[in-house]
């Protein structure tokens, strides 16, 4: 049976079991207990300030394909040998990549064969160092006015040490951009133009608009 088959036959059962235990620990613990990983959507980098939704957390947009930058910092004094990122249900996997060499990317699937996590193994993050992993995901569609907060679970595996983990929330909100510009800015700019035009007619000679 196996867990390894279920998860694509790549991860060792021992490691997968550890990861699952870790998943339970992380998902039942409060966010911020472990703080050596961050998950940040590209949309927050390029287009929206962090926390552009309702809370002080990274934000992305409903229904778009976005790149998620996962920064892992090794705060321990032993080397980190693997990273597993479980993305929330509703997110569709598109692609995974990593900047540094030596990492082997493995897609882990759930029972129905849908990608549920990505693991990176085969290289090391030395104590005090960090590494950046990229996940391209298609965001879930949130309701008409109901935004959603989703937790990414990030597990970090070490040599001869207990694994670490973190729970990193991302808020998915409705689109807020019109013609590539923030809709509120566009609205207020449009209104400003209207009032400027009203003022401008005062200097237009003999014109009765």
């Amino acid at each position: 049976m196996s867990l390894s088959r279920r998860f694509g036959g790549v991860a060792h059962p021992y490691r997968t079991a550890i990861a699952l235990v870790l998943l339970i620990i992380i998902s039942t613990s409060s966010s911020g207990v472990f703080a050596s990983a961050t998950v940040e959507p590209h949309y927050t980098h390029c287009c929206l300030p962090r926390g552009a939704g309702h809370g002080p957390i990274p934000t992305s947009i409903s229904g778009i394909t976005d790149e998620y930058e996962i920064v892992i910092v090794n705060n321990r004094n032993v080397s980190m040998t693997g990273v597993v990122v479980y993305f929330p249900a509703g997110f569709a996997f598109v692609n995974a990549s990593v900047g540094g060499g030596g990492w082997v990317t493995t897609i882990l699937r759930d029972q129905s064969g849908i990608p549920a996590a990505v693991s990176w193994n085969g290289s090391r993050i030395l104590p005090g160092a960090n590494a950046t992993f990229m996940l391209t995901l298609h965001n879930p569609t949130v309701g008409l006015q109901l935004s959603g907060v989703y937790d990414f679970l990030v597990a970090q595996l070490y040599v001869n040490a207990l694994p670490d983990g973190s729970r990193d929330p991302v808020e998915i909100i409705q689109p807020i951009r019109l013609f590539g510009i923030d809709s509120s800015a566009l609205a207020f700019d449009s209104i400003a133009i209207v009032f400027v035009l009203i003022a401008l007619q005062l200097v237009l000679p003999r014109r009765k608009l």
Binding site: L144, Q145, Q174, P175, I176, R177, L178, S183, S184, L186, A187, S190, I191, I193, V194
Partner: peptide, 14 residues
């Protein structure tokens, strides 16, 4: 309401 709808009303009217 979604921001796109609320602010969209102002943008279209302006």
């Amino acid at each position: 309401a979604p921001e796109l709808v609320a602010y969209g009303i102002l943008v279209l009217f302006s």
